[in-house]
């Protein structure tokens, strides 16, 4: 048997090994995503006659979407949430914490990093419960504000869910930044100190520029994770009050399973897929270009 060694050989067993993952992903992930594209153009309902006898309705869902004010509001809220809580909130919290940890006592370091990581490990339902209790009337925040009747979750719902989301993600951001800080050569800082640079100068002209790529990667990752955070918002506010926290994933669920418009919900889901493709593409291109 002669085998050419200069050409990489494709082992048929490879496909056997790939088969389970490929089948599962096609049947339960990619297939449904494609199926949803079709459903987005139908009048499928959750209950009633259009639950079984639904049909292709062309562009009517798209026309409805373009005139749906709640959709535009929802899109805007999604952007506010993803950028405000993910790209800025969680990333900044993680960065500030990682920087502070560098120069503090071992005991304080242990407590604060453990608390941040513990907050990150909690399941979303627990996070939602803790933050709901903290931010409603007579909760911790109203105590700190000095007014028992103060209901921050009602008056500033988006702020509270953003805070809760940043709280739950900052632990990973901190881990990423701590790792990056350890990679900064110590002699750079040493040299700057010998030159008489102040701490602020060291921070702004050495540490932060060296962390720039980590900041970008981390911000994008936090955005992706924030975008997927349906559970937290749905459990804390259900999208309310008055649609104040109705981000796209929540609006999709409400349209489908509360207002029974499965077809329209599928179309909203397609918008979510497109947005996450943009975010994911950004992430890949940024991390690839760095290698």
């Amino acid at each position: 048997m002669s085998v050419r060694l200069d050409i990489p050989r494709v082992d048929p067993v490879s496909f056997v090994f790939l088969a389970p993952a490929a089948l599962l992903l096609c049947a339960l992930f990619m297939g449904p995503v494609i199926y949803a594209i079709y459903l987005g153009f139908t009048n499928l309902q959750l209950i009633g006659i259009h639950a079984i006898n639904y049909r292709f309705t062309g562009m009517s869902n798209v026309v409805f979407l373009l005139h749906d004010e709640i959709f535009y509001q929802s899109l805007w809220l999604t952007i506010v949430f993803v950028i405000g809580s993910g790209a800025i909130g969680a990333t900044m919290l993680g960065l500030v914490l990682a920087l502070a940890l560098q120069g503090c006592m071992p005991f304080v370091r242990w407590i604060s990093s453990a608390a941040a990581i513990l907050a990150w490990t909690l399941p979303p339902t627990t996070i939602a419960f803790v933050w709901m209790a903290t931010s409603t009337q007579s909760g911790l925040i109203s105590l700190l504000a000095g007014n028992r009747q103060f209901d921050l979750l009602y008056s500033h719902a988006m702020l509270v869910v953003s805070l809760a989301n940043a709280w739950s993600l900052a632990g990973i951001a901190m881990t990423m930044f701590s790792a990056a800080l350890r990679n900064i050569p110590g002699d750079l800082i040493e040299a700057a100190k010998l030159e008489g640079a102040s701490l602020r100068q060291i921070l702004t002209s050495i540490t932060l520029p060296l962390l720039k790529s980590t900041i970008v990667t981390c911000a994008l990752l936090m955005m992706l994770m924030t975008f997927g955070n349906f559970t937290l918002i749905y459990l804390m506010t259900g999208g309310g009050p008055a649609n104040d926290t109705n981000i796209l994933p929540v609006y999709t669920y409400l349209q489908g399973f509360k207002f029974h418009n499965l077809g329209y919900a599928a179309l909203l889901g397609n918008v979510v897929v497109i947005l996450s493709a943009v975010l994911g593409g950004l992430f890949v291109s940024v991390t690839k270009s760095r290698r």
Binding site: P8, L18, V33, L39, A277, F283
Partner: peptide, 29 residues
């Protein structure tokens, strides 16, 4: 192992890991 279209496959996998899974509820339901 050597298989054809490895990079597109890896990119697809990476993309799927970033998609919010809430979009699956309607078609899966």
């Amino acid at each position: 192992q050597h298989i054809p279209f490895k990079n597109p496959l890896l990119l697809t996998v990476l993309f799927l890991s970033g998609v919010p899974i809430s979009i699956l509820i309607v078609p899966i339901y």
